[in-house]
């Protein structure tokens, strides 16, 4: 037991040394009951879901298997925008970037509302009609299924 403890301490020291020599912002690795979480940002502690400023597409809270509700309430007269495939739902092109479209935004028929990423393929989701975003039904980074309602878009009044 004592041997195991000293060996764990050696490992922790090696990782802390590696971290200090590096330009890594955060480390969070776990093996069995031993988890090592190091960060240059103290506010990251104590967290079970670390916020990592990584390249696109990434968000603070990654997916898990939580699925959105399958039946979304579509306001009367609004058009439902459905997911064309299973995948991960992204509301901005890369972490920290502005949302493609937010509640209340006016959008064109071809403008991107979100990306559904599936197996390295980025599906750009557009409303298909000009209008106003009146509903957003999935949170950034969530898994979606084909046919899930992503947005509701109220069509622009005809001229």
């Amino acid at each position: 037991m004592e041997h195991k403890l000293s060996s764990d301490l050696e490992v922790i020291k090696a990782i802390v040394d590696a971290f200090e020599r590096s330009d890594w912002a955060e480390i969070d690795v776990r093996s069995g009951s031993l988890r090592i979480h190091l960060s240059t940002q103290p506010q990251a502690f104590p967290g079970s879901a670390p916020e990592i400023p990584a390249g696109p597409p990434a968000v603070s809270n990654d997916t898990a298997d939580v699925r959105p509700t399958k039946t979304a309430a579509i306001p009367a007269g609004a058009h439902a925008v459905l997911s064309p495939s299973p995948g991960i739902f992204w509301r901005s092109p890369y972490p920290g970037a502005p949302l493609f479209a937010d509640l209340g935004d006016d959008v064109q028929s071809g403008s991107t509302l979100a990306i559904v990423e599936v197996m390295k393929l980025m599906n750009h989701i557009s409303s298909g009609i000009p209008g106003t975003v009146v509903g957003v039904f999935v949170e950034n980074g969530m898994r979606v299924d084909r046919g899930d309602t992503l947005f509701a878009v109220q069509p622009s009044a005809s001229p």
């Binding site: 590696a18 093996s31 997916t63 991960i88």
Partner: peptide, 29 residues
């Protein structure tokens, strides 16, 4: 013989992070 958890599913938060890989190797000796 064993596994090391290196983060969420997105590759940018796991398999594409050099620090996670190096520290996983150190942690698993």
């Amino acid at each position: 013989d064993g596994i090391v958890h290196i983060g969420p599913p997105s590759p940018t938060q796991s398999y594409l992070r050099v620090g996670q890989i190096v520290c996983a190797a150190l942690l698993a000796r």
